[in-house]
Design a binder for these strands. Structure first.
Ligand SMILES: NC(=O)c1ccc[n+]([C@@H]2O[C@H](COP(=O)([O-])OP(=O)(O)OC[C@H]3O[C@@H](n4cnc5c(N)ncnc54)[C@H](O)[C@@H]3O)[C@@H](O)[C@H]2O)c1
Ligand SMILES: NC(=O)c1ccc[n+]([C@@H]2O[C@H](COP(=O)([O-])OP(=O)(O)OC[C@H]3O[C@@H](n4cnc5c(N)ncnc54)[C@H](O)[C@@H]3O)[C@@H](O)[C@H]2O)c1
Lengths: 232, 232
DNA sequence: AAGAGTTTGTGAACGCGTTAACAAAATCGA
DNA sequence: TCGATTTTGTTAACGCGTTCACAAACTCTT
């Protein structure tokens, strides 16, 4: 499979933003929101980069993929830049999400208020357990897995979250895809196969801790100073 | 700051495994565990790579950083390789973790049984809310933030999880570091600054969904076929 | 014992992401 | 108006990660 990212369209609009940049744009948005709350109207790339925890050159490079929204010698208008990034990220609309598997993690996600300000709305909850179906979690009624098709179609939901045990993950993914979902966030420790056209992202919290444990072992094992933020 | 990763030590032991490889080793471990459960005693790089969802060449390259644990013409002994990776990852011991902020997410993490098989043990729970302190969550008593120093010292805990609201994250990180924690997993949507020698990893679930939303927007916006697993 | 077949381990090429460095473009003061 | 100053947008170099491709090393058959 040849993956080529069209760098620039005929109309000159910048398209095909690198994955690494897309992953940082929400961080810039968060920093810009914080600046707005502080009443800051404009800022330089250095200031914004510091707030976002990235290199200023990287920030400018990232923003350059969207267009030229700053003013040389001046900096960026906070509100204007915030809007441009939000638009690029599709955050001018709310994206409705269905969570499948309303156990410990699914319930926590359902209760989270922080999604709404990021353009995410938890629109429906689904579980296979008859005991949970019909109950109310964070103001939403838990529906049966059998109603998934109707729920997704009704609300034209395109994003699904898998918070079931690992051995149910593939089966749930299949049901989500069949219902019309084209993006999946998978919390289960299992690979899910999906057809072309469907995006899957996986979050594995065990792996995060295991990576930290690895570095811990190296710290205690040797006295070589090699510490750093080990995230990206 | 010059970060140079010592490629190979005097004793010939492979050291300084690339970050990208470290992040995949737990995935290989999981695949190997699954093979063991299925009674499979040995496997090729192709089989294991398929189970782990990676390119076979990448798998072999990753394993080559640990040493030469396969047999040409044959493949890998599942149990032997599993042990070697586990040893490299520091999974021959259990790593004790303290969770700070026992709200929705912290409680879900506390209840999670899947950590134990990955060498992670949730050893202590801490919260600032007097109403929560003293209560029992998943069999553990929630302690006060004031007792953090004693808890970390007593159990020689080196890993901390921040599951508090964002505006408390820095303060909690400072307390963790002061108590002696040298690795932090941060779920709060905030940057935390830590001194050299302390590792921080950040997990931002909003960002994960925002990235999916971005790709969704591009799917509907244009009819250009550019779908793929957008994770790493 | 030798050749055919298999699969690992790795050198080398390639591509993406990061960062430094600087020209272009704006403001400001004289 | 012009030069000094500031800061963006972008080019180019660099480094890391991925992938190909193949020699090395092992098994199996004859
Ligand atoms: N809880 C955590 O902190 C945590 C941490 C890391 C990973 N995870 C992973 O996240 C997932 C969920 O974890 P959890 O702790 O919430 O588990 P849980 O057991 O509390 O909840 C799982 C839920 O999924 C439902 N379910 C099972 N099969 C289903 C199906 N086929 N269709 C729909 N629903 C189904 C169950 O009824 C249950 O409500 C698991 O895969 C787990 O490994 C959780
Ligand atoms: N719940 C989710 O699904 C979810 C999703 C994405 C991000 N997050 C992030 O994870 C964090 C926790 O989320 P949550 O939903 O569990 O929040 P929550 O409000 O349910 O729980 C927060 C807990 O932290 C405690 N706390 C507050 N200040 C503290 C301090 N200084 N020291 C110790 N404890 C303190 C509170 O008493 C509370 O028990 C937040 O930063 C949130 O943004 C959560």
């Amino acid at each position: 499979m040849t993956i080529l990212r069209s760098p620039r369209l005929a109309d000159g609009t910048a398209r095909g933003i690198p994955d690494a940049t897309v992953a940082r744009l929400p961080v810039y948005l968060r920093a810009l929101n914080a600046l707005t709350e502080q009443g800051v109207g404009s800022c330089s790339s250095i200031e914004l980069a510091e707030k976002a925890g990235v290199n200023p050159a990287k920030l400018r490079k990232d923003l350059s993929y969207l267009g030229s929204y700053g003013t040389r010698g001046v900096g960026y208008d906070v509100e204007y830049l915030r809007y441009q990034i939000a638009r690029e990220m599709g955050q001018t609309q709310d994206w409705e999400v269905v969570i499948v598997g309303i156990g410990n993690l699914g319930s926590a996600l359902s209760a989270y208020q922080g999604f709404s300000t990021r353009g995410i709305r938890v629109a429906a909850l689904v579980d296979a357990d008859p005991q949970r179906v019909g109950s109310t979690v964070s103001g939403l009624t838990v529906s049966s897995l059998d109603d998934l098709d109707a729920i997704v179609a009704d609300r034209s939901i395109s994003i699904g979250v898998i918070a079931t045990p690992g051995d149910a993950a593939q089966q749930v993914a299949d049901r989500l895809v069949a219902a019309g979902v084209t993006s999946i966030l998978n919390f289960a420790p299992a690979l899910v196969q999906v057809p072309d056209g469907v995006d899957v992202r996986k979050v594995d919290l065990s792996v995060e801790l295991q990576i930290l444990a690895y570095h811990e072992q190296r710290k205690t094992g040797t006295d070589s100073k090699e510490p750093k933020v080990s995230n990206a």
